[in-house]
Design a protein around this nucleic acid. Structure first.
Lengths: 120, 120
DNA sequence: CGGCATCCCCCACGATACTG
DNA sequence: CAGTATCGTGGGGGATGCCG
């Protein structure tokens, strides 16, 4: 077991960051968490401003593959596909919120540091 | 203000993840946090197995620019450069630990989900 | 409606080499 | 020792178009 060994490529944290660090994951998890239920593909597409069809589908498939998101297909014409968080997915919401709170509290400081640094 | 609007490219969380999500950041922050003091370039290089000189330098500069890491040059021959976490950097350790704990607790479940998914 | 398929670009990252 | 410089590549990601 490589527990705690962030230096190892197999380290859980490193692998998790490889996933949730990807551009759209935290956004989609947040949208599904707030919806408190299911969202359709088009609804997600509208809500996630700026995302391309390709990346939305790709991200959702990745999340489904990881067991974080459930996909339910309604056999109608035209087809309706609904996405929701699994229990595992919901358990990730709290950790993400911690990160979000830190970011909201400290990104201004980071920006400020950056500006000063760049002006030297 | 774009507070809480993860959908906005200017959103703090999104921008933070763009930073700490980068391959080596969490690793270096962890090493500096555990050292409880300063580490030299070569020490970091040895500790962060697999990192290239280039990426180590690049990541450290990025962290310094963001005010998360302090750099202290000892004017000797050969030169000795010491890196440490700033207060801002140290404040990021706790949120990262939350993510790490979630990862350690749940990555097995994710891997399991992935395996099952792939075998269908 | 909910996707794949395709093309293309850019940049994170690695490998190697060189310097004060 | 602690870096820069340069080159090359893989894959993340966008734009567009087609399909059941």
């Amino acid at each position: 077991m490589t527990r705690g060994d962030l230096l190892d490529p197999a380290c859980p944290t490193r692998r998790l960051l490889d996933r949730i660090g990807t551009k759209w994951v935290s956004m989609i998890v947040k949208l599904l968490a707030e919806s408190a239920g299911e969202l359709r593909f088009a609804e997600l597409r509208r809500a996630a401003r700026g995302i391309s069809q390709k990346m939305l589908a790709q991200t959702l498939h990745g999340l489904e593959r990881d067991g974080l998101v459930a996909r339910r297909v309604e056999p109608s014409v035209p087809p309706a596909v609904h996405y929701s968080l699994t229990e595992l997915g919901r358990s990730l919401v709290a950790p993400l919120n911690v990160v979000r709170e830190w970011a909201e509290a400290n990104m201004a400081a980071i920006d400020s540091a950056r500006t000063h640094y760049d002006q030297r």
